[in-house]
Each structure stands twice: as structure tokens, then as C-alpha cells.
């Protein structure tokens, strides 16, 4: 474990806490893409298949449980809770995310570390996580105004994988045979997708203005 990876995991955890805060404190999920949340639930379910078979550390197991339960709780709440469900932007959260799932699955069948169920699904979860934010970014562009908690949620979510890139550079430099090309390249693509959001977030912060994404 290195400081970059720990910072990345904490930033990821904070993004989930900010989202839970927004939904439970405001009893609203306006501005949140249910499709992105469903993709994240799928990412964690397919990535942490080794939860019960390979024990790495208490920290690792705990974090996996937190990520799986929180992502399922958010999807369940956005679909099930009548008060929250009413605030869901159903008519603008229309990105066809099934194509993302299909594309990532085909790619995982072609590009993986080993052709086993666990490794193919792991590669699938890495590719899917890289593109899972697209429905959310599309929804924010369509909805125009972004409330503070939603903006912070997306900001922390984008920042976490940037810390992981620093972690991979650090491990590549300090560990003999550390190569994790699938995660590294996907992580670069994932972070690049946030580039324009980071830019508009910085501009709005500098001008102390409301965050607006151009349509």
C-alpha cells in the first residue's frame, strides 16, 4: 500500500459518502444518473468475485464490502424509495448504457490477463468502470445546472482514479515486475473523460460561479 493508492481509495470513499449525503439529506437524486449507478454496481460485483476466496487484508475486504453495499443501496434507493424516485431525471437520463456493457464485455473477451471467468470479468469491470461515468456526464450537460453535492461527487470520483495513476507509476518504479497494463490504460481513459468536467469545475470555482457544463 502506498500513499497514492490510499489517497485514491479515500477519495473514492468520500465520493460515495457525498452521494449518499446528497440523496439522504436532500431526499433527492436529481442530477444523478441511475444508469451510471447501475454500471458501478455491476463494476463492483464483477470485480470483487474474489471477496470470499482470496483474503488480502482486512482493509481490502472491508472496502470491497463498502463499495458493493453502497452501490447497491444507491441503486435500490433510486429505484425503490418513492420520495427519491420521484426526483429522478428519468426523461434526460436516457444514455443507452447497455451498449457500454456489451462493448466492455466483448473487449474483455478479447483483452484479458488469463482466459478464466474471474479474470475476464475482472477485465470487464476495469473497462466498464472507465466508461461508467458517461451517462452521468451526459445527464449533467443536458440538465445544465449542477448542484454543489453532485458536482463534488463527480469531482472526487474523477480524482480517485488520478491518484491510482500516480500509484501505478510509483509501483512501476519501485516494484520489480509490476505491470498492470489493462488497469493503467483504462485508468488513463477514465481520468481523461473527466478532463472537461475538471476544467469547468475549476473555472466555476475560480469565478465563484455556479457550475455549468456547456450543452
Amino acid at each position: 500500500m502506498n500513499i497514492f493508492r490510499f489517497a485514491g481509495d479515500m477519495t473514492h470513499l468520500i465520493s460515495i459518502l457525498v452521494l449518499l449525503l446528497k440523496i439522504y439529506a436532500t431526499k433527492s437524486c436529481s442530477g444523478i444518473s441511475l444508469k451510471t449507478q447501475e454500471l458501478y454496481a455491476l463494476v463492483f460485483l464483477t470485480r470483487y468475485l474474489d471477496l470470499f476466496t482470496d483474503f488480502i487484508s482486512l482493509y481490502n475486504t472491508l472496502m470491497k464490502l463498502v463499495f458493493i453495499t453502497s452501490s447497491l443501496a444507491i441503486v435500490w434507493c433510486m429505484r425503490g424509495d418513492p420520495a427519491v424516485r420521484r426526483t429522478y431525471d428519468k426523461e434526460i437520463d436516457t444514455f443507452r448504457h447497455y451498449f457500454l456493457v456489451l462493448g466492455c464485455f466483448v473487449l474483455a473477451l478479447l483483452l484479458h490477463e488469463k482466459f478464466t471467468v474471474q479474470e475476464v470479468l475482472w477485465a470487464f469491470s476495469i473497462y466498464l468502470e472507465a466508461v461508467a461515468i458517461i451517462p452521468q456526464l451526459v445527464l449533467l450537460q443536458r440538465s445544465g445546472n449542477v448542484d454543489n453535492l453532485t458536482g463534488q461527487y463527480v469531482l472526487f470520483l474523477g480524482a480517485y482514479r488520478a491518484f491510482y495513476i500516480l500509484n501505478w507509476i510509483y509501483r512501476y518504479l519501485t516494484e520489480a515486475r509490476f505491470t498492470r497494463w489493462i488497469a493503467c490504460i483504462s485508468g488513463l481513459v477514465q481520468t481523461a473523460l473527466y478532463a472537461d468536467f475538471f476544467y469547468y469545475y475549476f473555472i466555476s470555482w475560480k469565478n465563484n460561479a455556479k457550475l455549468k457544463l456547456p450543452a
Binding site: 493508492r5 481509495d9 482470496d54 474471474q118
Partner: peptide
């Protein structure tokens, strides 16, 4: 970590 010790990250 799989048998080959990989995948220790979240």
C-alpha cells in the same frame, strides 16, 4: 490476491 499474487488493489 489470486494464486499468482496479483489483484491486490480495489
Amino acid at each position: 490476491a489470486r494464486r499468482d499474487g496479483s489483484k491486490d488493489e480495489l
